[in-house]
Write a protein that binds this DNA or RNA. Structure first.
Lengths: 224, 224
DNA sequence: CGACTCTTTGAACATGTTCAACAAGCGTGG
DNA sequence: CCACGCTTGTTGAACATGTTCAAAGAGTCG
């Protein structure tokens, strides 16, 4: 069986900011780059998993669809994050760009080769998988047991940790994306955000894609 | 960073029946065995992850608790399944025996040692992780987007695949366990089962811990 | 400015929860 | 072997959270 980081909740995979241990390593010799525009498909469930990816800039969502169109976004991936490593020959999830994005494209065979020695990339991959698993566990708790408001609080805190510019989070994704990630509807997401704003915990300036976390402590309390 | 299979949805880890590729390998030289009685704790979130386990007989649940007691069972583990391999030094989940169980206890250091060479156990561990991730993804879809009846249908079909004695599933776990796994309440689990029974899709003989799958096709249709 | 999309808000509704009671199994001990 | 008590599971009714359906505001881009 081949290796593979599938990409569950797993974003902060190799994000240097978050993984000091696995940090300042230059990109392998020749790594292809590809640019994707917003909503462009990167791969679909069932595609041969010939490559895996590292986000250079932008944001990516990985998700699954039910036959009737219901969607579950398992994770968002930001610069530094690795996604698309699969266990089998096929991608088990679909992936597409949330916004215009640049990705470093790695051949799967590179990984397999590197996985042979206890090399750095191998460790990275395992590292990624572990993080993916951890995130998936957190997310299962969220989806199975948390209320709408708690989910939003969790989500905002998580994003802040990964994207933070000191309490100001710029959401690259739509309310629908958030809903499909948190197991809610757009309307519920919108309402919860409004409630948090009215409570003075967050601020939603003008264009609504920015969130100012006014009171992280309150968010943490809400997060249960 | 140390390796680690955390145990997300990941039950059929190394179950020989399901992993023909990684199959007929004898247990390492000296492997300790421990017996646990029903509801006995195996480890708790935060414990040092000195060991990982393989179920010899019985059933185990791994779960997390929220501060107020809400529980999310991420997976059940049956004979052949490995669980308890963690990324860090600590267990990220709690585990306890669902019924009286016998476990093979492996020292974490064994795994670390074996993980150095591209040996069989290393592959097993990675294999486990991948499966864990796959299950976690499935479970996120279930928790985020499926209705109560769909969840029950999924659950029964999944169990049947792992425990099947030709359409008859013996549930080792209580309704509460099922509820905490599927993100529902006991009452909803009970009602859904009753509905399936009234629809003639399943049968719940006397002591209610046995489920006869009368119409798997119907279950699959329900599963969405 | 106008068309479009995205987000918010409102109101009715539904699914699943909560609270409460009852039934059924199981084990213990008389 | 039955009675008792406890735990587990089922059922009912009221309730709540989040959904669905509908419409109106805002932002964006041509």
């Amino acid at each position: 069986m081949q290796l593979a980081l599938a990409s569950a909740g797993l974003a902060p995979a190799l994000n240097p900011r978050l993984v000091p241990a696995a940090m300042p390593r230059p990109e392998p010799r020749t790594v292809a780059r590809r640019t994707f525009e917003a909503d462009e498909e990167i791969y679909t469930e069932g595609d041969r998993a010939a490559h895996f990816y590292r986000v250079v800039s932008g944001a990516v969502r990985t998700y699954r669809l039910l036959s009737d169109g219901r969607r579950q976004i398992d994770g968002f991936h930001f610069p530094g994050d690795i996604f698309g490593i699969e266990a089998g020959d096929e991608h088990r999830l679909s992936a597409d760009a949330v916004t215009g994005s640049v990705l470093a494209v790695h051949r799967r065979s590179d990984r397999d080769a590197l996985a042979q020695d206890a090399g750095a990339l191998a460790r990275d991959v395992v590292d990624s998988m572990m993080r993916a698993l951890g995130r998936a566990q957190d997310h299962m708790m969220l989806l199975g047991r948390k209320s709408a408001k708690e989910r939003i609080a969790s989500f905002l805190l998580g994003l802040a940790e990964r994207l933070d510019a000191a309490g100001v989070v710029d959401l690259p994704m739509s309310r629908i994306d958030i809903a499909d990630h948190l197991g809610l509807t757009v309307e519920s997401v919108s309402r919860s955000l409004t409630q948090l704003e009215r409570a003075g915990i967050i601020e939603l300036p003008a264009h609504r894609r920015t969130v100012v976390l006014r009171d992280k402590a309150a968010l943490r309390r809400l997060d249960a």
